[in-house]
Write a protein that binds this DNA or RNA. Structure first.
Lengths: 400, 400
DNA sequence: AGGTCACATGAAGGCGATCTCCGGCACGAA
DNA sequence: TTCGTGCCGGAGATCGCCTTCATGTGACCT
């Protein structure tokens, strides 16, 4: 077991920097004094940090605002051009990459077809995308924070998957992160797609500023996962497997699942099952756009799928609420937008919550704002998150 | 939303003190140099902190040990008599209190019958127990850290319950913690019974030193709850309701529950249901000992209950593993020891985990070591935990 | 006997937050 | 117009805590 380690001044400074950035990010333009009040830091301390952040272009001052009294306020806000990040996503048929600025806005985008992506073929392709993205948009290379990558599966540091071989053939024990980092020469972070999406929504999306929420991710390839952000921290579980809820049992005597159990959530709600209901046998060969069109057209098969998927989904939401008591559950994923919309409109009535009388500042369920791009934008958010989010770890000294 | 606040040296010192205590608690007697290695603190810093902790009697030095080389090691360990704590539990028919030392050993114990405990009757009784416990054992009153109280339900700071009136008649909106604190003049901490039990096992029990685990609590009064300890921190949810898993749906078309849903876990696994199966109509009137005797005798009713309870329980364990990915799940509660034993022996085979090949340092499921006392000993652990556990909060400046 | 290793501790230094003082700005009252 | 007040931001001194350096101690090894 890793012991909890001590802290010192250096860690404290790093933490305070992050706290200031986080305050400005979540609350919009703030004066130094306002930041000081929110963070409980001294005005002077904030002043020092803001000065430093302004020098490194992460914060920019706006026009001074004259109030009723006193010295005009100088509001500071995040400088979008202060840092850049690259997000990668690898699907069954294509590899995609985006270059975003600090505010999450997409500056450049590349998509390339790629057949049967095993590590040997995928790594050079991804490397090329990263390099081409840097050519496609003119920016200061020193401000590139790193590369984030979203993949199905579960990943430890260095991007080594912890799942069984059958879920990701060829990727077992392959150090994605280390290998890509060696090639592109900037820090690389690898995360599960649900977790990446959660971070994306937390930084730039509907979950901005929330302390605890669960992201329910419906993967286009089938398979449901949850990304958890709890008490201001990402929660990944003791073996990086937290949130693998595709295999929770929603129907004890239900359909047989590939995992050997009966009635797993994945067997009811995932897009793969929707294609079965719609009689689409060759879903893997069709392009995402073709699939979207088929779904948008609707039909009996789709309705039948919805009929049997809604109840397990409600049950899962109920379950996540009871277990995690999040402020909200964000629903999203890389599935077709129309499929998500149809699911969402059938969702109500949700199960009665445990505290029905309690007022809520946030809806129980929200739809993620980035649609099908959720995973790749989340991937791009990973380096930003890792550099700017206040965490318990940064306050502790590195041990060993 | 509460912003994450900054830190300073004072907070850092408080954190480092806690880190040193935690290191000694979980790893047994340690020399100063050993503590320094584990915590990544400087030998000098550790030396200062240890000196301070020794002065306040929290650590005691043992005999110097002569090694193969070098200066003899002076191992320090937790001084059981360095601090004391009081735990309270309120059941349907009785109120109990224990006085424990810093190691969790019980120094004194009081149990008193109490009929229909509403706040007006319970508060004076609890106050009397706290005062009598301090008389019953001779110790330095300045070393009493505080009073911890375990109750069914969910509690915010100050012990105000967040649940609906029907679950706890008369206690709705009653500030248990504040009221008791006013009476006994020491800090009072109120927690849900599952959470308290989790802390107890983490400090003195089978979960000692674990970073992430879930405590599955089977309450004697019926009702199942989970206490979560994740990444070294207690997780209580955004509205203190996390772990209220008695009402997760384990059988979508199953028995109707009082909450309005069908097939809730509580309707299958709780002791209340066991009594129904055994034909015990007047369970509330019987003493706990009588109930234990009935269960120990067994019979067809009990077997029938076990038959239908095991699958939902397995399903719940599976679910908790998938959602939280804990190092282990600790099973315990205030139910009869023989009932717990019978459940435990029927538990295998558990559902296949998501990473079957992975080696585990800790069993998937463990039985809590404190048996029926788990909640009250957990309650006594609350003040100790709150004073000595390294947390993210202590590193942050109090805001507002 | 001297060298080396491991542990412990005192003194000086470094670092970052804090305290104190000060100036600038704008409004309101005299 | 002048002064007082409330608010904001900056400069330098100070404080608290960790770190580094130096020294001491005890025991084994050569």
């Amino acid at each position: 077991m890793k012991a909890i380690s001590g802290t010192n001044l250096e860690q404290a400074k790093s933490h305070n920097r992050r706290v200031v950035i986080e305050a400005v990010r979540t609350h919009g333009p703030l004066s130094r004094a306002a930041i000081a009040r929110m963070t409980a830091l001294t005005a002077q301390t904030v002043s020092n940090i803001v000065e430093e952040l302004e020098r490194s272009h992460l914060l920019v001052p706006a026009e001074a605002q004259k109030l009723a009294r006193g010295q005009p306020i100088i509001p500071y806000s995040i400088n979008p051009a202060g840092a850049y990040s690259i997000g990668l996503e690898l699907g069954r048929q294509r590899a995609s990459g985006v270059l975003t600025d600090l505010s999450g806005a997409v500056c450049a985008r590349i998509e390339r077809p790629i057949e049967h992506p095993d590590p040997q073929r995928a790594m050079p392709a991804l490397q090329a995308i990263v390099e081409d993205l840097q050519q496609a948009f003119d920016f200061d290379r020193n401000r590139l924070l790193g590369v984030g990558m979203a993949l199905p599966g579960r990943y430890a540091d260095g991007g080594i998957t912890s799942l069984s071989p059958q879920s990701l053939p060829g990727w077992q024990d392959f150090p994605v992160g280390h290998e890509l980092e060696r090639r592109v020469k900037v820090p690389v972070l690898v995360e599960n797609d649900a977790t990446a999406a959660a971070i994306g929504e937390r930084l730039h999306g509907v979950a901005r500023g929330l302390g605890s929420f669960v992201y329910l991710f419906l993967a286009g390839g089938g398979g449901i996962g949850a990304g958890m952000f709890l008490d201001g921290h990402l929660y990944k579980g003791s073996r990086n497997n937290a949130g693998e809820i595709g295999h929770i049992i929603v129907e004890p005597h239900g359909k047989l699942c590939s995992c050997g159990k009966r009635g797993c959530l994945d067997r009811y709600v995932s897009p793969t099952v929707a294609y079965e209901f719609m009689g689409i046998a060759n879903a893997e060969e069709l392009s995402p756009d073709d699939l979207d069109a088929l779904i948008a057209r609707g039909g009996e098969g789709l309705d039948a799928w919805l009929d049997q998927a809604v109840q397990p989904l409600r049950q899962t939401l109920d379950f996540l609420e009871l277990a995690f008591d999040p402020q909200t559950i964000v629903l999203g994923g890389s599935i077709s937008t129309s499929l998500m919309a149809r699911l969402a409109e059938r969702l109500e009535p949700l199960h009665v919550p445990i505290d029905p009388d309690r007022k809520r500042a946030v809806p129980r369920v929200m739809i993620g704002m980035t649609g099908k791009d959720t995973a790749i934008l989340g991937a791009a958010a990973l380096p930003i998150f890792s550099e700017t989010n206040p965490r318990f770890d940064v306050l502790q000294k590195p041990v060993g």
